[in-house]
Structures are given as structure tokens and as C-alpha cells.
Amino acid sequence: MMVERMEMLITLLGGISTLAVFSFLIKENAFYRLFEHIFIGISAGIGLVVSIKSFIWPKLFAPLLGLDIVTYPDGTFSKSYEPATLLYLIPMLFGTLFYFIYSKRHSWLAKLVIGFALGASGGAAFKGFFNEMMPQLFGTFKPLLVFSGHQIDWFESFSNCVFIFTLLSVMYYFFFSIRSESRTLGRVGVAGRWLMMVSFGAFFGSTIMARMALLVERLQFLLDDWSAAVAALFRIWL
């Protein structure tokens, strides 16, 4: 019963919050502002709590302090303490040097951490770039004539031709080092710009689609869950 009441309360609050945010569509108002600030506060707070609860405590402090070792009724332990976990202290202490950024005299210590983080991220990004981009580069090597058995697959062939033309014309549009005076090449650049416009149109259309999907989900929540919670609340009062 208590759990059901709590769920009903959460649903009611969720509906009120949704309506508060939607009230901005009518005009800027204090109701909207209040819930906007609540939302920002909760978003910041929940990240910290979940990080501590799901990661920092169970995976760092509990093993470090030996608090993940269970003592059984017969006096034996679920496992022995691993001294190697003490090594966690080294990166932890190194990481805390970041807070020296607030000290004018010792801010160079924070730069050590920042430098390490930048170096590590840069190295990983370098590897990641090749893992991500090389298959895409190879993916652009498409045959202009595609055969299906002994027959030409006209649709695939046309599709590949459009692909290659788009690729080359867009690349030419962004090729600023040497500009040719040729009118034909100039038209290729213009075609590249137009093809990009088509692509931006697709992005814009899909953005609208995503926003509408968010609205549908909220409407579904209001019409199904929230209206049921409001009805239940009235039943309790009456």
C-alpha cells in the first residue's frame, strides 16, 4: 500500500513537472522557472549520488578498506584482503592534485594532472580515430558498376555513382588550397554545396522527428499514467 502511494506521488509530481515545463509554450512564467531550477539541481545531484553509490564506494573504497569482505557465522571470511588494492591510493592521490587549481602558489600541481589527462585522452583518441575512420575510408571505395550474377544491378550502380559524385563534389567544395578558374570545377563545388543542403535538410527533418517523439512520450505519460494517478487521488479524497 505504502509503495503504491509512493509510486502514485512520484507519477503526480512527474505530471506536474511536465506541465510546468510545457507552460513555457504559452509564455515565460514563474512556474516554469521554478521547475527548471529544480531540474538542474536534481540532474547535478543525481550524478554525484549514483557515481558514489554505484562506483566509488563498491569498486574503490569498499575493497580498499576491506569492507566488501563478509564474515560468516563460523568465523571464516568470504575472501582475504588483497594488499594490491592499496595501489588504488596512487591514482587517487594523484587525482586529488587537481584541487590545487584553487591555490595560486601550488597550481602547477594541478597542471600535472591536467597534462596527464590530456596526454592519455590524446593517445586514446589517436587510436580511436583510426579504428573509426579507416573502415569508413575503405567504405568509400565503391564500384560504379555493380553486378548481380551476370546482370548489372542498375539501382545499386546508380546509388554508388551518386555516392561517389557527392563525396568528390563535397570534398572539392572544402578544398581551399588551390582554386581552379575552371567553370566546370566551379559547378562541381556548387553541386557539393547543394548536396550538403540536402543533407542538412535531412538532419533538420530528423531533429523535428526526435522532438515530436519526446512530445509523444510525455503525452502518453500524461494521458495514461498521470491521469490514472489523478483519478486515484480523487478516489482517495472522496
Partner: peptide, 17 residues
């Protein structure tokens, strides 16, 4: 993916990733 990222995600389908 969400609708916003569909055009971007198609690139990875095309490359076989």
C-alpha cells in the same frame, strides 16, 4: 539511435561498422 542522429548513424551502416 534517436531520430536526430539517424543521418550520422547511416554512415556506419554503409561502412559495415
Amino acid at each position: 539511435c534517436t531520430s536526430i542522429t539517424i543521418p550520422e548513424a547511416y554512415i556506419y551502416m554503409d561502412s559495415g561498422q
